[in-house]
Amino acid sequence: MCPRALRLLRGLCLWLLLGTVSGNRSCVFYETPHNLQGSMRHQGRLLAGAEHGTILCHSSHCCFGIWNQSHGRLQAVMQGCWGSDRDGCDSPACKTSPVHTAGVIFQRCLCRSDFCNANVSQLGAPAAPQGE
């Protein structure tokens, strides 16, 4: 009976461990009230009602963040759950890359640890004009 009980116990531990690992990702949730069409709130379950809330991701372990960069300062535009783990969401920290569009510079990142999208952890290279 002893080896069998041990096997059951080992199974239970593994189940608890996997349960933790595969549990919901928590991300910071924020969406600017200005000039935003649509929302990313369908990608998770919103917890707090505050301006910078918390969202538990439905289908991925990936957070995203978008900041508007002007005069050297960053202003959050969107933060939340990204819907897929397979879109370049490899870093645990929010290392942004810049995109220069119509005179506006955005810094954006995908990252895979709880609340990793709260702040920019490493700023991307200075934005250069993109496109052909």
Partner: peptide, 17 residues
Amino acid sequence: LTINLRYDFIIVPVEYT
């Protein structure tokens, strides 16, 4: 296959599977 979305009007994602 990963497709690059580095167009100046696409903010996120930069690439996708």
